[in-house]
Amino acid sequence: MPIHWCLESRLRILLFGSLGEQIGREIDADLPAEGCSVASLRMLLAERDPAFAPLARASARACVDQAIVREDYVIRPGQEVAFVPPLSGG
């Protein structure tokens, strides 16, 4: 019996501001069932497509479930993930 079939889940990543304009409002990634750190996710995306390079920059902050998180935060399946540029304020 294959053991791989439930090992990955589809992660939807939201992008805002200049990132959304450059890359698109939404991208998908495969997330391992055990989760993946923000730092690994950035590397994974940047390797997949040169257009995603801005997501590897420190100025793009990662948000999970609408709160800014650190690089070692482990993203789990089912969480809402976004990358945001520095806030411009109101």
Binding site: G17, S18, P85, S88, G89
Partner: peptide
């Protein structure tokens, strides 16, 4: 002006630009 979660693009007559505080 600094903490509201917005990303602002200014539409200038010479082009558009994203701005920061």
């Amino acid at each position: 002006k600094t903490e509201a979660a917005f990303w602002k693009r200014e539409h200038r007559i010479d082009g558009a630009a994203w701005i920061e505080p």
